[in-house]
Computed example of a mutant assay.
Amino acid sequence: MTLVEKLRSGARTIGYWVLSDNPQAVERVAGVGYDYVCFDAQHGLLDYRALLDGMTALDARGCAGLVRVQDNQQFWIGQALDAGATGVIIPMVNSADDARAAVAACRYPPAGRRSMGPVRAELRFPTRPAEADAAVLCLPMIETAEGLAAVEEIAAVPGVDGLYIGPSDLRLGLGGAAPDDPAYDDVFAQALERVRAACASAGIVAGIHTPSGAVAARRFAEGFSWCSVASDLTHLEEAARSHLGEAQG
């Protein structure tokens, strides 16, 4: 089953998050067994060359790649898909109009306005527009109070394959003093349920970023069908700290 088939079907889908420009590390992670690796072009340390190298490393291990693009703009979305991404996670989607713009950027005419020039993508995906449109994922993020207020309308936009929650920004957007402000646990939990319900009503999947495998397991139990786990830099630091502590006794 391809990533597109698995995610759209609602089957449990688990991804890994990459912030650094290190294709050799990506190649190793890609062999662990995650359903996809997502490159964070918005907050990560990645330029277009790094995306190309990362996608090539994934291809070597037969792993699918997503990109969290810099912004909801035709250029960034088209560039990521042309590089060979199976789909894009689009930040700061606050309205149905924003979602429609994201969908149009992912699809070729007449369904959308993506420019024909797949370059690397033609090595992995069909080049006929209708077939190519069906082979990529459009995944808007819900991470603001405005996006949450419009989540039912966003989820119902044709061509949206799923919604992805940015938990840190969403908690801040709801009034939290910090990305993990415990005073907003109840408000945040209600927001998660609203997103899940909107996705279920629209027949699409609900996803969320998680800081660990343990939290991902909890989110799956709550009803999410796809989760990304932590990040390469987080795990590098955690492992280095743990080994240093053991060595120091």
Rank of each mutant, 00 (worst) to 15 (best):
E5Q: 13
L7S: 01
L7P: 03
R8D: 00
A11R: 14
A11G: 09
L19I: 06
L19P: 00
S20H: 08
N22T: 11
Q24K: 13
V26C: 13
E27F: 06
A30E: 10
G31Q: 11
Y34P: 01
D35M: 07
Y36N: 07
V37E: 13
F39Q: 09
D40Y: 04
G44K: 08
A50T: 01
L52H: 07
T56V: 14
A57S: 13
L58G: 04
L58C: 12
D59Q: 13
R61W: 11
G62Y: 00
V69L: 01
I77D: 09
Q79I: 06
Q79L: 07
G84D: 07
A85Y: 10
V88F: 06
I90T: 12
M92A: 08
M92S: 07
V93S: 09
S95A: 06
D97E: 15
A104I: 05
C106E: 12
Y108R: 01
Y108A: 00
A111W: 04
G112Y: 06
M116Q: 09
G117E: 07
R124L: 14
F125C: 02
R128F: 03
E131D: 15
A132D: 03
D133K: 05
D133F: 04
A134L: 09
A135D: 10
L137F: 07
M141T: 00
I142L: 05
A145G: 01
G147S: 07
A149H: 09
A150S: 08
V151S: 06
I154K: 09
A155L: 10
P158Y: 00
G159S: 08
V160P: 09
V160S: 01
V160T: 04
D161H: 06
G162Y: 09
Y164H: 11
Y164M: 10
I165N: 04
I165C: 06
G166V: 05
S168T: 05
R171G: 04
R171Q: 02
L172I: 03
G175K: 01
G176F: 12
P179N: 04
D180E: 12
D181M: 01
Q190E: 15
R194N: 11
V195D: 04
V195A: 13
A197V: 15
C199E: 09
A202T: 07
G203A: 08
G203D: 13
I204D: 02
I204T: 02
H209W: 10
T210Y: 06
V215D: 13
A216W: 06
R218P: 06
R219V: 03
F220Y: 11
S225G: 08
S231R: 03
S231G: 10
D232R: 00
L236K: 14
L236V: 13
E237L: 10
E238W: 14
E238A: 15
A240L: 15
S242C: 04
H243E: 13
L244S: 11
G245Q: 12
E246C: 01
Q248M: 09
